[in-house]
Amino acid sequence: MRWFNLGLRFVLELCAFAALAYGGWHVPGPTWVRILAAVALPVAGAVVWARWVAPKASHPIPDPLRLVPEWVVFGGATAALLLTGHFVLAGVLALLAAGNRWALHALRTGTGGDPA
């Protein structure tokens, strides 16, 4: 069960970055602004993730403070989906991300797969 939840978490991270790129592409403005936003938003999310949340983060934050950058990324992705009119996808992403985080906590598993 632990490995399933860790695999799901990885897929959800990729979905969050894709949602940020999609949201960036739908920013109003000229094409160059849309391209810039479509690249910058997921890169910013990836930097936040790599710095504080990833299993080999450069500056890992212990639980429960780790929830802050996690929800910045997942919340931003959910907001991007909401703002582009994908209400069901936004709800699914938010519920799966929250449920997955709860399952990892219940299994006493850290986000890197280590026992918490």
Rank of each mutant, 00 (worst) to 15 (best):
G91F: 07
T78Y: 09
G45D: 08
T84S: 11
D63W: 15
I35R: 10
T31W: 14
A79H: 04
A106R: 13
S58P: 06
L14I: 15
F74S: 04
W49S: 07
E70R: 15
G110F: 13
G110P: 12
V88C: 04
V43L: 15
W52Y: 14
G75A: 05
L14D: 06
C15R: 00
W102E: 02
I61Y: 03
M1K: 04
G24Y: 14
R66M: 01
R66P: 01
L36P: 05
L96F: 15
L104A: 00
G112D: 10
T84E: 06
W49T: 14
E70T: 08
P60M: 02
G24F: 10
G23M: 01
V47E: 12
W52G: 14
W71G: 00
L107V: 01
L93H: 05
V39Y: 07
G113V: 02
I35M: 08
W49Y: 14
L20T: 15
S58V: 02
H86Y: 07
A79F: 07
L65P: 02
R9P: 02
A19N: 07
G24H: 14
D63S: 14
A106T: 09
V53D: 03
G85K: 00
G99K: 12
A16V: 15
F10M: 13
A94S: 10
V11T: 14
V73E: 01
A40S: 12
L104S: 00
T84Y: 03
A97S: 11
W52L: 08
G75W: 07
P69K: 01
A18D: 09
R108I: 10
G29H: 05
T31N: 04
P115E: 06
G113P: 12
A54N: 05
G110L: 04
T78N: 04
A77K: 07
F10T: 14
L89R: 09
R51G: 09
L41W: 15
S58G: 13
L6I: 03
L81Y: 11
T78W: 06
P55I: 05
A18K: 07
F87P: 05
E13G: 02
F74K: 05
S58K: 04
N5D: 10
N100M: 07
L104C: 04
W32H: 14
P42Y: 04
A103M: 12
T111V: 03
F4I: 10
A79L: 13
W25P: 02
L41M: 11
F4E: 05
F4T: 09
V53W: 00
N100S: 02
V43P: 08
F4L: 12
R34W: 03
W49I: 10
V72R: 00
G75Y: 08
R66T: 02
N100I: 11
T78Q: 03
A79G: 09
G23R: 12
H105S: 03
V92N: 06
S58H: 04
G113R: 01
A54T: 08
F17E: 04
P115I: 01
A57P: 11
